[in-house]
């Protein structure tokens, strides 16, 4: 049971890390927590289902299309709803919370309450260490998630665009003085944050089918990961995501499945009581 739980924890941990990177990116640059993060995650699952299952496109193509469309949707949302709330925490919290409920109910109306599942990429199972059989689809999700996380790190740490993002999240005004168009950067990074949620969504949807509200636990866990890792820290997201994934699945295996999502929140409360700036956080806001 232990190796199985560890494996599940690893897969979920990578997905949580990916979702949390999106949240963290938006918090770092815009100081906005997007409460609708989980709904963007689900939207990508639905899109990839529509393209692959209903239109019969190739899974890779339909996943890229899904992520691209969620990216554009994120940009539209930033431009129409989030932009006027800059500098006002309260309204961005309220607006994104309302947005998440609106989207959930819109999905319910459009896609119905039943779980939708895009086709898997690979079939069968692999025997791991001669110990147990593990679904190939989950292994593929683990690999895809890892590749995506590495890609995000390269984008942020090595490219010109990443340098702008890091500059703006350290000191907005200084970045502006150096010629960074921060308004455009905001829009683009919000879209990117949504695209990261979408990437987590398309990777995980073939394993865990999507329903209108199944994004909520993932988004809540991503917020816990961001607080645990420290707001704005990328390594914090990866380490925190893995911790959360492992704790949840070990807890579910050995303590109680009903309380699976409770462990994450207990971590959140302990972190806030003991070290509110998180594992890798330097700033206190």
């Amino acid at each position: 049971m232990l190796p199985m739980a560890l494996m599940n924890g690893l897969v979920m941990g990578v997905i949580y890390a990916l979702a949390a990177l999106g949240v963290s990116l938006v918090v770092g640059i815009m100081n906005v927590i997007n409460f609708a993060h989980g709904e963007f995650y689900i939207l990508a699952g639905y899109f990839s289902y529509l393209f692959a299952d209903t239109l019969g496109l190739n899974p890779i193509l339909s996943m890229s299309l899904a992520v691209g469309m969620v990216f554009l949707f994120g940009i539209v949302i930033e431009y129409t709803i989030i932009r006027p709330t800059y500098g006002n925490h309260m309204y961005s919290l309220i607006l994104t919370f309302i947005l998440s409920i609106v989207l959930q109910n819109a999905y319910l109306l459009i896609f119905g309450p039943y779980p939708k599942k895009p086709p898997g990429w690979v079939k069968g199972a692999t025997n791991i260490f001669g110990d147990f059989c593990y679904g190939n689809q989950r292994l593929a999700a683990l690999a895809a998630g890892t590749v995506l996380i590495v890609a995000v790190f390269l984008l942020i740490k090595k490219t010109w665009f990443g340098r702008m993002i890091r500059a703006a999240s350290q000191d907005r005004e200084m970045a502006e003085l150096n010629g960074v168009n921060t308004a455009l950067l905001n829009t683009f990074s919000f879209g990117l944050g949504c695209a990261l949620a979408a990437a987590a969504g398309v990777v995980l949807a073939p394993v865990f089918p999507v329903t209108p509200t199944s994004g909520v636990p993932v988004a809540l866990t991503a917020f816990v990961v961001v607080v645990l890792g420290g707001m704005g820290s990328m390594w914090g997201c990866v380490i925190g995501g893995l911790i959360l994934g492992l704790v949840e699945n070990l807890g579910a295996a050995f303590i109680s499945t009903g309380y699976k999502h409770l462990f994450g929140f207990i971590i959140l409360i302990v972190v806030l009581a003991v070290k509110p700036s998180g594992l890798f956080g330097s700033r206190e806001t």
Binding site: I33, I269, L272
Partner: peptide, 26 residues
């Protein structure tokens, strides 16, 4: 627990708290 941190932390903790309560009651 969370008002020392203000803003975003309060919203996140209260969201987490309300989920904890829902999970326990269910």
């Amino acid at each position: 627990l969370c008002l020392r941190m203000g803003g975003i932390y309060l919203s996140l903790t209260t969201l987490g708290f309300s989920e904890i309560l829902r999970i326990i009651i269910t």
